[in-house]
Design a protein around this nucleic acid. Structure first.
Lengths: 196, 196
DNA sequence: GTCTATAATTAGATAGAC
DNA sequence: GTCTATCTAATTATAGAC
């Protein structure tokens, strides 16, 4: 089972993505060099190009994977029995998923402008699809006459912005547990849209 | 009133800040070069250094000015007669102020990590001071028994994230007028925190 | 105050040895 | 698959002429 000296192909690929994700989130895509990534991985810069065609593809791959994970995790949830239950499930899911992946979330929101045109369209399509999940819930709640929402799209964006904002301040080491945070946000979301 | 050839000192300084603000918002601080800024201003790159010591100072100046403007505009508002009225005034003020300055807002939220440590502390202090304005309103509303808020700080951040999110999608050319947008957000904010 | 020219460094990406 | 070496281009910032 001798291994070629300096060859670590099984681990290098994932390491590149993990290191790039960390560095992009910390310093920003444009501010991170291929040499920096290589240094964290533990290889020379040239070796990166055995795994990725260029820097742009690396960014796209990270964002694509994140959006695919998000949509897959959302689909894995069991259907709710009412619009109110669905909204609660969505709220708790969104907070939990995003708090689990602070780096990926940061990149997904901050580096959209650094995607090539084609890549941007693809990511934006996935993002819109995810937004649609919440819009559908609000739509159902209107039909059930349990929600009071002036504009479905605006409400969707307002709620998602509010929930995603949790990633900018929440720390696991802080005073609040995750479920406490979920409870607080859920109360606000519920009241924000519920028919009174 | 002869003017030195190639000298435009009265206009170059403001032009540099305006051009940098536009470019930083579009492409990101790290992705924009001094030559790009100079090209938009209409001078050579070296001329920029008559006005700013370095690129970092340019970013800081833009963010500092934005935060100073924000706090000054907020202070210029007349006091409200109740916590509910104060919350409505804050909501409409925040939306209007941010929609007026999409580039400055984008930079203020996206480029925090590109500030030097000292500069970051200074901007963060101003941001926290602004947040405190909303926290105070929520605090007063609790005392008046018109608000129901589990955690003042979390509610503050949730509301600000929701409101600031308007800048990511609102366009003047869109279907909704500004006051319609303000109305929609105000309804959601009010319901989110009001005692029921 | 702006220009041209340049110093010093760094960038993304590739070629070829092993 | 990784390394060393390198190409080409771009970067921030400065020096000195005008």
């Amino acid at each position: 089972m001798a291994r070629t000296q300096g060859s670590h192909s099984a681990s290098t690929g994932p390491k590149i993505r993990a290191s790039a994700q960390r560095l992009f989130a910390q310093h920003g895509y444009a501010a991170v060099s291929m040499r920096q990534i290589a240094a964290v991985v533990g290889v020379q810069a040239g070796a990166l190009y055995n795994y990725i065609p260029d820097k742009q593809a690396l960014l796209f791959e990270l964002m694509k994977q994140h959006m695919d994970d998000l949509l897959a995790a959302r689909r894995a949830q069991k259907p709710a029995q009412s619009a109110l239950a669905a909204l609660e499930a969505f709220t708790r899911f969104h907070i939990g998923f995003h708090l689990d992946r602070p780096d990926a979330v940061f990149i997904a929101y901050m580096e959209l402008r650094n995607l090539s045109d084609d890549n941007f369209v693809e990511i934006e399509t996935l993002r819109t699809r995810y937004e649609g999940e919440l819009t559908q819930i609000l739509h159902d709640g209107l039909a059930e006459r349990v929600f009071d929402v002036t504009d479905l799209k605006v409400a969707t964006r307002a709620i998602i912005a509010m929930l995603t904002g949790v990633t900018t301040w929440y720390r696991n080491s802080g005073a609040l547990s995750r479920s406490e945070v979920e409870d607080i946000y859920w109360l606000m979301v519920r009241n924000a849209v519920r028919l009174t």
